[in-house]
C-alpha cells in the first residue's frame, strides 16, 4: 500500500508538520512505501539554508534531507505553490520533484493523509 503524506503547513508555526514528517519516517522505518507532497504554505519547508537556531529550533530543510536515507521514496512539491512563494531549483533543497497536484499524483496512492 502506497501512502502520500501531505505537508501543507508552513514550518515552525506549529507541530503538525513535524508530526506528519514523523509519521512518514515511521512508515519508511517499516518499509512501507511513502512519499511526501509539499503544497500551499508547506512548500516553505523546502527553502535551502534555513538557520532555525535563530529561533532555537532545528532546521527543517536539514531534517528533510534525511528522508531518502530513511527510505522515503519521493519528495514532491506543488508547482503552483512553489511559484507563489518564489521557490525554484536554486532556492530549494536538492531532490525535489515538481508536481502538478491537479494531475494524476494523488491517484497513484492508495492512502493520502493530511494532518491539518
Amino acid at each position: 500500500m502506497k501512502t502520500l503524506v501531505i505537508m501543507n503547513q508552513a514550518p515552525y508555526g506549529d507541530w503538525s508538520g513535524r508530526e506528519a514528517l514523523d509519521m512518514a519516517f515511521s512508515l519508511a522505518a517499516f518499509d512501507q512505501p511513502v512519499a511526501l507532497l509539499f503544497t500551499g504554505d508547506g512548500v516553505n519547508w523546502l527553502r535551502r539554508e534555513q538557520e532555525a537556531a535563530a529561533i532555537s529550533q532545528k532546521a527543517v530543510d536539514r531534517n528533510l534531507a534525511a528522508a531518502t536515507i530513511f527510505g522515503v521514496t519521493a519528495l514532491y512539491a506543488d508547482q503552483q505553490s512553489c511559484h507563489r512563494f518564489g521557490l525554484d531549483q536554486h532556492t530549494m533543497i536538492a531532490g525535489i520533484t515538481l508536481a502538478d497536484t491537479n494531475a494524476g499524483l494523488l491517484g497513484e496512492y492508495d492512502h493520502v493523509i493530511s494532518l491539518s
Binding site: A10, P11, Y12, D41, N44, R47, R48, E49, Q50, E51, A52, A53, A54, I55, Q57, A59, D61, H83, R84, F85, G86, T91
Partner: peptide, 27 residues
Amino acid sequence: VLALVDKGLTLEGCVYALSPDLKARAI
C-alpha cells in the same frame, strides 16, 4: 514573514520584519 515571498500579496507603507524569523525560514 512568509508574506515577503508570497507573490499573491503586495505590502505597502511602513513594514518591518523580525530578522531571526527571516533567517530561520531562509527568507
